[in-house]
Design a protein around this nucleic acid. Structure first.
Length: 306
DNA sequence: GTATGATCGTAGGTGCAAGA
DNA sequence: TCTTGCACCTACGATCATAC
């Protein structure tokens, strides 16, 4: 993409590099606010066609200026719908050639189909869909906040807290960083990968300072769980905690914290802690069979804390 | 040098819907 | 009824950083 010019594999002096530099110069000459061109500079060519990215910039600008949650929701759905990546997430741009340099035919078809879509048309379809939804009559509020803040100052008095923290070391903010940037309307720098000497911008184009959940970091997870339990206990309401059971005898990837340890922490804050194993459920197996280690024994567990 | 932890790049099985 | 295409999203292996 344009933001990574000079660090990519394109040979200096090639016509593609010349075109990219000229495009960048023309964008700068327009004198637009940097946040207003962030899609085309950061995600154009990487996750969207340049034309789609330009349209997205315009749509996102409109949505943010309006302050309308419906417009913003339709914008984010449009970005999510258009993104040309593996699995429709924002951590894995398409790699159109295999390791031998041969173009992947099915990927080429996918690129042509997805990058030919009009952002405006997709946006209008989502807008019509969301505008036609009935309005919920029950009291509710959506909050974007750190869980500690949300528990310390709840927007509404809850009757129960349901928590679904991550349980592996994978930070899922990687998969939504572009939507975060579109929603915030800023112009973040892109992080550099720790691979290759640390001088190459991350292939996923991650925004600097993206959220890293303490539940995914082994050294921080115990304090995070303690804060969660303490925060809910202070509200004097029950807690339903979703976690993943894990049998250390199986080959599956260990959880950041063992279930027994989580239960032990819960018991420090609640008189009654029950564990319900959802035996009939298994996580979807989303990997090649050879890598799909031991889905059995890693089923969903609910901690009922009172 | 080794162990441990953290980050990044990556693959693809499953279930559903649409089309043949 | 069968086939095909697609969205979903988990979690692996490789690599690097840090602590000892």
């Amino acid at each position: 993409n344009l933001t990574s010019l000079g660090t990519e594999e394109v040979a200096a002096g090639s016509s593609l590099m010349d075109a990219a530099r000229e495009a960048q110069a023309r964008i700068e000459a327009l004198g637009l606010p940097s946040a207003g061109t962030v899609c085309v500079r950061h995600f154009g060519g990487q996750y969207f066609s340049y034309a789609q990215a330009v349209e997205l910039d315009a749509i996102a600008d409109l949505a943010r200026d309006s302050g309308s949650s419906v417009l913003l929701a339709a914008t984010l759905s449009t970005a999510s719908h258009l993104v040309n990546s593996i699995g429709k997430q924002f951590a894995q741009p398409i790699r159109p050639r295999d390791k031998f340099g041969t173009p992947k035919r099915h990927v080429v078809r996918k690129i042509i189909a997805e990058r030919g879509l009009s952002a405006r048309s997709v946006f209008m379809a989502y807008l019509r869909q969301y505008e036609s939804l009935s309005i919920a009559r029950r009291d509710h509020v959506a909050v974007r906040a750190d869980f500690r803040e949300a528990l310390a100052k709840p927007a509404l008095k809850p009757s129960v807290v349901y928590a679904d923290p991550p349980y592996t070391r994978d930070h899922y903010s990687r998969f939504y960083h572009s939507l975060e940037t579109i929603a915030l309307g800023d112009d973040p720098s892109i992080t550099k990968s720790n691979l290759g000497g640390g001088n190459i911008k991350s292939r996923g184009g991650y925004r600097a300072g993206r959220h890293q959940s303490p539940f995914c970091i082994k050294s921080e997870a115990p304090a995070a769980f303690s804060a969660l339990f303490a925060g809910v206990a202070t509200l004097q309401v029950p807690l339903v905690l979703s976690y993943s059971g894990y049998d250390p005898n199986m080959e599956a990837r260990p959880r950041v914290m063992a279930l027994d340890t989580v239960i032990g922490l819960a018991k420090q804050h609640f008189k009654d802690v029950r564990v319900e194993q959802l035996a009939s459920l298994e996580h979807m197996k989303l990997n090649t069979t050879s890598l799909n280690k031991a889905a059995k024994g890693t089923t969903e567990v609910l901690l009922l804390c009172r």
